[in-house]
Computed example of a mutant assay.
Amino acid sequence: MPTLRTEDGVDLYYEEAGSGAPMLFVHEFAGDHRSWEGQMRHFARRYRCVAYNARGYPPSAVPTDPEAYSQARAADDVAAVIRGLGLGPTHVVGCSMGAYATLHLGLRHPSLARSLTAVGVGYGSEPSRQAQFRAESQATAARFRNEGMAAVAAVYGRGPTRLAYERNDPRGFAEFLDRLAGHSAEGSALTMLGVQSRRPSLFELEAALRALAVPTLVVAGDEDEPALVPSLFLKRVVPTAALLVMPGCGHTPNLEDPGNFDRALLEFVTRVDAGRWHRPAAPPA
């Protein structure tokens, strides 16, 4: 079973396929490396593709120290995968929690990123929603511990941003719920408390994001309401960012509409590799 070790001694499970320019996929809270299987199969035809499980998600290690989980750790784990596998500057693609880690990689370790793709990012970032998001995260963590993973997954996995997935692909959605139910309850609780509930709002990072020079693609489903305003914010402040809103999609466009998602991602990384992704002109004063 392939693993690599982070600087703080946590073993991360990973899978890879293909050869060529490196592309790394970073999963959401309710997913794992298998969330990117469709993209691994598609892009491995021309790229070296890697997907891994975050700490807290077996077969990666589940550290018991709550301080082992944070937004900074999550970003540094992305860096650990890139360095540990000798990938060099990498196209990094993340969804939701993984999109936060992807953006923070660009802020903390920009030399490791060839491009950044942030999908379904921003839940809880709007200042008016942040307190509620943190309270909900803490309550959900307690439920994982008290009720068990399977019981909570049946409810958590059916939130309003998931309805489009269930409608568009019932078979895939059932598989998503089954995988979520099999996650570690303790790992999920620690991740929810250490990463999700404590991460800074994107709006708090405006100054740093305005200085981000890595080519960036922001993707949101038009039925993923909590991601729409933050995604537009990123488009406005990140000087290298483009925004794609995918119709009829919720929180996981890569799963709900993989054909269009893959085409858009391929167009983006191809332009980056060709040196054709430029900073857009500044808007008129």
Results as ranks from 00 to 15, higher is better:
130 Q>E: 12
33 H>T: 06
95 C>L: 15
101 A>P: 04
133 F>L: 07
101 A>N: 05
88 G>F: 10
89 P>D: 04
89 P>K: 13
99 A>Y: 04
45 R>K: 14
133 F>T: 06
99 A>S: 14
103 L>N: 10
130 Q>T: 13
53 N>S: 15
124 G>S: 06
100 Y>G: 14
134 R>I: 00
57 Y>K: 11
130 Q>L: 14
25 F>L: 15
35 S>L: 11
118 A>I: 03
104 H>G: 04
99 A>K: 11
59 P>W: 01
51 A>L: 03
110 P>N: 12
115 S>D: 00
97 M>F: 02
32 D>R: 06
41 R>H: 11
62 V>R: 10
19 S>Y: 01
73 R>I: 07
40 M>S: 03
92 V>F: 03
44 A>K: 04
130 Q>R: 15
96 S>V: 06
93 V>M: 04
64 T>F: 05
126 E>Y: 01
66 P>V: 10
99 A>H: 05
37 E>V: 10
34 R>Y: 01
67 E>P: 05
36 W>F: 15
49 C>S: 12
53 N>V: 10
136 E>Q: 14
72 A>N: 03
22 P>K: 05
106 G>F: 04
114 R>I: 04
92 V>D: 01
33 H>M: 13
68 A>N: 12
49 C>M: 07
83 R>P: 09
70 S>P: 03
29 F>T: 14
52 Y>V: 13
104 H>N: 13
60 S>N: 05
29 F>M: 14
70 S>Y: 01
